[in-house]
Amino acid sequence: MRESVVEQTAPHIGLHQLRFQYGDGTLALQGISLTVNAGESVALVGPNGSGKSTLLMHLVGLLQGQGEIVVAGLPVVKTHLPEIRRRVGLVFQHPDDQLFLLRLYDDVAFGPRNQGLAPDDVHARVTEALARVRLDGYVDRVAHHLSTGEKKRAALATVLAMQPEILLLDEPSSNLDPRSRRDLQRILAELPVTKIIATHDMEFALALCNRAVILDAGQVVADGPCRALFADADLMERHGLEVPASLCAPACC
């Protein structure tokens, strides 16, 4: 994995007053302002429809709302999108969407090939990415023969092969059994990149992130250390979340 080129103190992601409304009139983001420093792991939590996925899609220019967004030192505008998408990897919620080619090798090689790398470099990237997600030897497997856990890890490999500085993950632990979830958690913990993890899985967030941002109805309602926020039962209850079992006093479980 390439070392981050941004100094540890410089904001890696900056959002200022981001607003976005879908075509059907739903106001998905209502003036989001947020800063994420290089190397940080941030959990983006909130109830369904709070705007987590919408926010992630703005960071790679898939959606364009009003307000300012700077990612890896570049304003998110059309001319910068190829460079931003080279430096930011987004792992979508449904691995079947992410794995669209027949052979796993080709799927993982898709990004590096689009970056114009030579075949030997592409091969090296694919080998390294599959090794990182513990799928060595799966190069010739087809996506519909993989388990959900393997698909999730394969989807992560498709992004890691592009050697991103920033990793955005949308519900990475959804539909995973405990072992697959643990495996994925271990893999993500080893990645030395800036991470934003949108999730409902509070234990997963707690294990991987120091900081949490709580979104509700398209607004940032809390931003602070994971443990402090997740242990606040009133705050969690108010925003459709719950205190993770590991932070629960025996009486509340």
């Binding site: 790679v60 992410q98 669209f100 898709f110 689009n114």
Partner: peptide, 20 residues
């Protein structure tokens, strides 16, 4: 819907309209 999501997945991995 799925086609749109797949297209998004391709675009964020550098797809610009032609396969390598």
């Amino acid at each position: 819907d799925r086609a749109e999501r797949i297209h998004n997945c391709m675009v964020v991995r550098g797809f610009a309209g032609t396969m390598a």
